Computed example of a mutant assay.
Amino acid sequence: MRRIIVSVAVGMLAGVGCLAQNGDKYVITGEMTRDSLRFTPQAVRMVYLACQSDGKEVRLDSAVVKNKTFRFEGKAPRFVEAAYLSGFDNGSVQLLLEPGNITVQPFDAHYPVSAKVSGTPSNDVMSGYYAVRGKDVQESKVRMNNLFNSLPEEVKNNPEQRMDYHGSVFNINTVMQKVVALEYLRSHLDSEAALFIIKYDIYHLFQPKTIERTLMRAVSSRLRQHPVYRELENKIKASNLKVGSPAPDIAGVTPEGKEISLSDYKGKYVLLDIWASWCGPCRREFPYLKQAMTASEANDKFVILSYSIDSKEPDWVNSIEKNELKHKNWIHFSTLKGWSSDAVSLFNVQGVPHTVLLNPKGEVVAFNLRGEEMLNKVKRIIEGVETYE
């Protein structure tokens, strides 16, 4: 059926992953062994293909259920994307959207989460992972039950004493969870599914540095342009953000509608200025930022990237115009997501203005330089008195 967009977060980045197409076709077919809703006495009449964008559901398509079956057909995204089938009242069917014939094997509509998806490379890998993970969960339950059954009655009836024993088995189960996940991943490092396994199942099991030094370096080089790889890379950088460390990348759109990212300006010193039109302290910094631009007039190796956390485009654009915040090396960009902007979480922004000075390699030189301190630092860099390259 016709593509339906239910809710897209207000913002200027139209190219969200689950909408970017590459022209290759996908076909999704599915069958239900029972087609009734679990908590409502009626049949499942419509199934929706959807994904998440900025925490909100984006419905990509819909299909009428006929004789307990449904079918979707469309253009696949440029990169393999996480998607799901909704329209049930007790969860959804998870899948990876990619070119090819994707089959949702017969499942009970009361429990759509248990549906098995196969037929394309990434979905086959993910299905295999769910199988080994499910086996590990059952074995973990057996270990815990065996422990409980082996305990003396007085320990079984004493929660505090029982927890001492349970703690040891819990630790064993956690170790086995890591072993099973890593062993499976080791055999599928060339699959896009590996990125989703790392993101959703493995990342929280290890320290970010461990993820970076082992898994991120181990996955196939062809996966390193995938948005999920970049997302993980950013998350790792943000977890250890300090002077001398590489900065995470952020993207946005200029008032003219051009998509840019922080990484586009590698090779230059960058003052990342995170601000908002409603922020009084931000406005007090404007004269110093203008002086920094004047000081660097004849030197193109320094730029200011002002990232607004406004949520309304007119407020943002009008503030730039009203306060004359314009210069060839003063670039403005935003996603208009307010405090939900990626920059807020990735740069641990507690308040605005928040500045980060970066060297030409994209490494942090200093945090929260303001006023005369910021201006003097910029002048010394431009004059060559200080270098951080």
Rank of each mutant, 00 (worst) to 15 (best):
R143W: 08
R143S: 12
R143A: 07
R143Y: 10
M144R: 15
M144Q: 15
M144P: 05
M144S: 15
M144H: 05
M144W: 03
M144F: 04
N145Y: 09
N145L: 13
N145F: 12
N145A: 13
N145M: 14
N145K: 04
L147K: 07
L147G: 07
L147C: 07
L147D: 09
F148D: 06
F148H: 09
N149R: 14
N149M: 07
N149I: 07
S150N: 10
S150L: 01
S150R: 04
S150K: 03
L151R: 00
P152E: 01
P152A: 02
E153P: 00
E154W: 05
E154T: 04
E154S: 12
E154F: 12
V155P: 05
V155N: 00
V155K: 00
V155Q: 06
V155M: 11
V155E: 02
V155H: 03
K156L: 02
K156P: 02
N157P: 02
N157H: 14
N158C: 05
N158W: 07
P159F: 04
P159D: 04
P159E: 01
P159S: 14
P159R: 06
P159A: 04
E160S: 05
E160P: 00
Q161V: 01
R162W: 02
R162Y: 01
R162K: 15
R162S: 08
M163N: 06
M163K: 15
M163R: 08
M163T: 05
D164A: 10
D164C: 03
D164P: 00
D164T: 13
Y165I: 02
Y165R: 11
H166S: 08
H166T: 06
H166R: 14
H166K: 14
G167R: 14
G167H: 05
G167M: 12
S168N: 08
S168E: 14
S168G: 05
S168C: 06
S168L: 13
S168Q: 14
V169Y: 12
V169S: 04
F170I: 11
F170D: 07
N171I: 07
N171G: 09
N171P: 00
N171T: 10
I172Q: 14
I172A: 04
I172P: 09
I172Y: 06
N173S: 03
N173R: 11
N173G: 08
N173Y: 10
N173Q: 08
N173T: 09
T174E: 12
V175N: 09
V175D: 11
V175K: 13
V175L: 12
V175E: 13
M176A: 10
Q177R: 15
V179F: 12
V179I: 14
V180K: 00
V180Y: 01
A181Q: 02
A181K: 05
A181M: 02
A181S: 15
A181F: 00
L182I: 11
L182K: 12
L182R: 11
L182V: 12
E183K: 15
E183D: 15
Y184E: 05
Y184P: 02
Y184W: 05
L185N: 02
L185D: 03
R186S: 15
R186H: 04
R186D: 13
S187A: 13
S187M: 09
H188S: 06
H188C: 00
H188Q: 05
H188I: 08
H188K: 12
L189A: 07
L189C: 00
L189W: 09
L189G: 04
L189T: 13
L189M: 10
